[in-house]
Amino acid sequence: MNAFILLLISVLWTGLKFPDPNMILDRVDQNMLSTTKILEGRMIVYGKRNTRIITFRSYSEGIHKSFTEYLTPAREAGTKMLKLKDNLWIYSPAADRIIQLSGHMLKQSVMGSDMSYEDMMEDRKMKDVYDATVTGEETVDGRKCWILELNAKVEDVAYEKMKIWVDQLRYVPLREELYAKSGQLLKRVVMSDVKRFGDRWYPTKINYKDVLKNGKGTDFIITRLQLGVKIDEYIFTKAALKK
């Protein structure tokens, strides 16, 4: 009986101490997801022998539609990528062809980075896929964060478990860890240089790293971000790839 009361108290206590995890996720979505978004940035790929910088501009609407165009270096310039729900097309100006990526080609890395095309395809809302709990607090980069532990509630998900560190005030995730079912850490995403864009906070530097591989991972740096601007529907069509 005593044990039960203790348990009850501790549950209530944690409940009191930590906010509702779904609320946190909602607030994160509110902050991060915009109906429309135009983003310019660069990707820094740290290779064994060299470091490459690739700049790009991407347009997105919601989470199902996105269009990315690579700007530099010269050999990547004009390469465009269109994602509509589960489909991914790539346009190459060198070949002037649109090729749909499927099967094993999705396992290829994006521009030699630690991220695969497949990683880019996951676009369901976290709330729909994971059960979240707040497991504690931690300071990351001088910001107080909630630690959210996410466990998959559906079966067909690439990462069974995730840990997210969310800024308690700005509702920006500052760190994400993606785990295998066994609990083995597979990938780590570190977000930093959070800046204010209108009424939103956005990280402008993201480091994405496959922890099983040697190396420093890949940096994504956002140089320009426009939120809530109007994007022509035409952008999200295959025809736009060739233009």
Binding site: E155, A158, Y159, E160, A180, K181, Q184, L186, L212
Partner: peptide, 16 residues
């Protein structure tokens, strides 16, 4: 050594 695989649903798993 670390072995990584995906289960029947495509979920990553890995163990030493």
């Amino acid at each position: 050594v670390l072995l990584r695989w995906r289960d029947r649903n495509g979920t990553f798993d890995a163990v030493e």
